[in-house]
């Protein structure tokens, strides 16, 4: 039932947005887009289409799968085997068994490989889904992060490798490269800047990191799907005109560690609804 209401809301929102993108005046365009999102929020009440991902994710989490035919319920997300509640809020962190710092997606993938026996090649096949075909990871990650609703962001940042990851992330944030000489800091290094009408958080500051970090993963209205933080970083490197960072690579995890540590203390409210 809920599902059907959301589907209906989605269709009507697409109508609103589709219409607004066809109008010539950008002023009007912005107003209509915002009005569209507001109307959409109203229709949904407290609901967010990410809930569908969460429900599917929970089912997938508990269902035996992979060559070992076991569920992910034994997965240790950092707070002990089987504990999902609050675990996301304390990532990225160093995992002894893996010998590296992992963000939540890397850890879920680790469990798919080590607990369920899924091959790395299979795990990497389709990390980012599409509106009509979300990826398994998007479902799982939405389920896991939602279980941290109400928790404060608190990555440990105590193990030497966690500190090294923070530093690496901070350094990468400032590396300028590519045909346009951009770094993350070119777009996210000053207060109150915009690209077109999109406000850019100053990710060198705690307050903006807190706001930005708890916004991800997010259900994005413009793409009609849930996107993860790994996707967010991937797409910003695309905008930076660089080659592609490998999924869950140390560089991406370091950037996520940097932002998570900077966002420490922010209350996580579950997947956000975004433009």
């Amino acid at each position: 039932m809920k599902k059907r209401i959301m589907a209906a809301a989605l269709v009507s929102l697409c109508g609103v947005l589709g219409l607004s993108f066809a109008t010539p005046s950008l002023a009007q365009k912005k107003d209509e887009t915002i009005a569209g999102i507001e109307k959409y929020r109203e229709m949904l009440g407290d609901d967010n289409p990410a809930e569908l991902y969460e429900m599917r994710g929970e089912a997938a989490w508990k269902k035996p799968a992979g060559p070992n035919n076991v569920s992910l319920e034994k997965c240790d997300l950092g707070l002990g085997a089987g504990i999902v509640k609050g675990a996301y809020a304390q990532t990225p962190r160093y995992f002894e068994d893996a010998g590296r710092v992992m963000d939540i997606e890397s850890r879920i993938a680790w469990c798919m490989m080590t607990v369920q026996g899924i091959s790395e090649a299979d795990m990497r096949k389709r990390p980012f889904g599409s509106a009509d075909k979300p990826s398994l990871m998007e479902d799982l990650v939405t389920y896991v992060v939602t279980a941290s609703k109400g928790f404060k962001i608190a990555p440990p940042n105590t193990h030497p490798q966690e500190k090294a990851a923070f530093e690496l992330g901070q350094s990468i944030f400032h590396v300028r490269a590519g045909p346009y000489d951009f770094s993350c800091a070119t777009c996210h290094g000053q207060d109150g800047k915009r690209i077109r009408l999109q406000e850019l958080p100053n990710l060198t500051k705690a307050a903006d990191n807190q706001r930005a970090y708890i916004g991800w993963p997010a259900y994005r209205v413009s793409t009609s799907q849930v996107h993860s933080m790994q996707w967010r970083i991937n797409d910003c490197f695309r905008q930076q005109r660089l080659p592609e960072p490998k999924y869950m690579s140390e560089s991406v995890n370091a950037l996520i560690t940097y932002m998570a540590v900077m966002a420490t203390g922010a209350e996580y409210k579950g997947p956000a609804l975004k433009r």
């Binding site: 990468i172 490269a177 695309r238 660089l242 080659p243 592609e244 370091a254």
Partner: peptide, 17 residues
């Protein structure tokens, strides 16, 4: 780290690093 962790994609080659 970036040179190790990135891959060429479409028109965006590794030379961009």
């Amino acid at each position: 780290s970036m040179k190790r962790d990135f891959q060429a994609k479409g028109i965006a080659g590794m030379d961009r690093l």
